[in-house]
Design a protein around this nucleic acid. Structure first.
Lengths: 150, 150
DNA sequence: TAATTTAATTAAATCTCTTATACACTTCTG
DNA sequence: CAGAAGTGTATAAGAGATTTAATTAAATTA
């Protein structure tokens, strides 16, 4: 009943990750954009310009959905379409400074909340989390590889 | 530029939690239900029966949205409406065994993925995550209190 | 008891995303 | 190098989820 890998309780880790998801997902910031739209802005800010098909793949929605999202974001001045010099059919979506403010602002918001919560932990608890961060980061990276290699 | 609480890098922790959210959010399981619907089932399975207004508050959607979700879930036999003995206006939403299978199945799916990923970590990395789990769990609990006390 | 508040529902409108289709450009093949 | 096939994007129509506004019923309060 306890699928464990060595001494690590995967069940417990799954529960924590699930709780983090529910904790993060409904942080609105006066939610003017859908989850997918916010994720597109995050991807562009994090990874740089991308084609529409790349965005569709990484966000796991259909290509027409990305076209619509980008059209809407373009009207709001948050992204720009540029021709891809290496392919006349393709479009490269660039985030604008105004667009980059949105994921940045959301991150700031989350940092504020977590900073407050962290003060309620004991020094030992903070140290334990700190010591686990590199491993957690690698877990996330491994998952990214898993997803893209499918 | 690095908001730290003691020796814990909140910036890094925020990034990890954000990555976990994006990693978790698109796990479909042949997505027959919306994110909110799945979250309602999770809440009912985890916390027990709830009123519609409670669900609306915890899921951060409007009351009519919950009414529709519960109506749909009721038709599928995943939840049941029962009168609240203490208030004739209210309805208590109970999850059925069939309904409880859904969040349970999703958890199993996530456990499988994480189990695979964990085998790719070094024993030291697994030990570090293991040592941090109680602290991470408490962080989640502190956040739950924060949310409900607003 | 009348007025007000609270819980849930219903209806209409909106937003987001999907499928199906079309079009333009690129690459492959003979 | 011409025609066929493939790839990248856009448009249109429609389904699903969620919102606002309005309605009903029960509880609380004055």
């Amino acid at each position: 009943m306890q699928p464990d890998s060595g001494d690590l309780s995967i069940t417990e880790l799954t529960a924590v990750i699930g709780a983090f998801t529910r904790m993060n997902i409904r942080l609105p910031s006066i939610q003017r954009h859908s989850f997918t739209t916010l994720s597109v802005l995050h991807s562009l800010a994090h990874d740089g310009p991308k084609r529409l098909t790349e965005l569709a793949a990484s966000e796991q929605v259909t290509q027409p959905a990305i076209t619509q999202i980008v059209t809407k974001l373009e009207k709001e001045g948050l992204v720009e379409r540029h021709p891809d010099p290496s392919d006349g059919r393709a479009v490269l979506v660039h985030i604008t400074p105004k667009g980059a403010e949105i994921p940045h602002g959301r991150e700031t918001e989350r940092i504020t909340i977590l900073t407050d919560l962290a003060t309620l932990l004991t020094p030992a608890e903070r140290a334990a989390i700190s010591a686990a961060l590199p491993a957690l980061t690698r877990l996330v990276e491994l998952n990214t590889e898993r997803t893209s290699n499918t």
